[in-house]
Amino acid sequence: MHISEGFLSPGVLATGWAVTAAGVAWGIKKMDEGEIVRVSMASSVFFLASLVNVRVGPSAAHLSLIGPVGLMLGWASFPAMFTALLLQAVLFQFGGLLVLGANCASMAVPAVLANALFGSFVRGRGEKIAAAASFFAGALAVLTSAGIAGLLLFFSDHGMALTAKTLLAAHLPLSAVEGATALFMTLFLRRAFPDILTGGGRP
């Protein structure tokens, strides 16, 4: 999902940074001092979770958990993803520092959207509706993220249109895995610790 250095044009890079700056500013404005530790814990758990290989059929995948992050943090997903991606870029050179804005925007925007569209269903009473909503939140968040990454590539160079379409198609099987993981995780958290699924609001 990470776009590497060298792919994006200066205009797209600047747009990515502008969206990320606006999202991070809004996210930290809505976050009070007491919440910083909670967000940092969630951010580090997702940073670590993205380092784990899950076996899917004959191959293995790194899951991004964009949907569950959105359902837990809401707008705070922007600063949480920004810090996690900055750490990944500095410690592991995943993605890069110049493309950090674009990468953060392509992951945090779907997280916020997942919370806005499915958050109330996930936090609602019906378990079956919550399960379906968490599956779609997880799966669609990954597809939206791949779609945004594809658009960023397309706007950098129109010749990369087919590359962008292939990128989106390659994420279709992964989105099913992400959806299933989001479903199991949300059902587990609904039973064990429902206060954590606040979508950025107070429990």
Binding site: A42, L48, F184, M185, F193
Partner: peptide
Amino acid sequence: ACMVGTTL
């Protein structure tokens, strides 16, 4: 999923 949930 349960492992990530427990860590959370």
